[in-house]
Amino acid sequence: MAFKGQIVIDTEHCKGCGVCIEACPMQCIEISKNVNSKGYNYTHTVNDKCIGCASCAMVCPDGVISVYKVKC
């Protein structure tokens, strides 16, 4: 069974540590060139390969990632 996922990053509270990028098996996440109001280059998704595995959210120290998932 395959899954399709989508993550929502609270970019305002993301500190851009990049730990989620390492954790993502689908290489969906990258550091943005833009910064939030604290001056952090936050992370964002760069493709639609997300499978909703929540690995990124598991390791996010700031709990800024919410994960959505559907069967397909």
């Binding site: 996922g5 952090y40 929540a54 919410s66 559907v70």
Partner: peptide, 26 residues
């Protein structure tokens, strides 16, 4: 996909909404 019924993970309510002071990646 971003609909309440599809939510599989989000920050627990037992954590407050205060932004943690820890360094990035801590």
């Amino acid at each position: 996909i971003v609909k309440p019924e599809n939510l599989v993970y989000t920050k627990t309510k037992v954590l407050t909404d205060n932004v943690m002071h820890y360094c990035p990646g801590c």
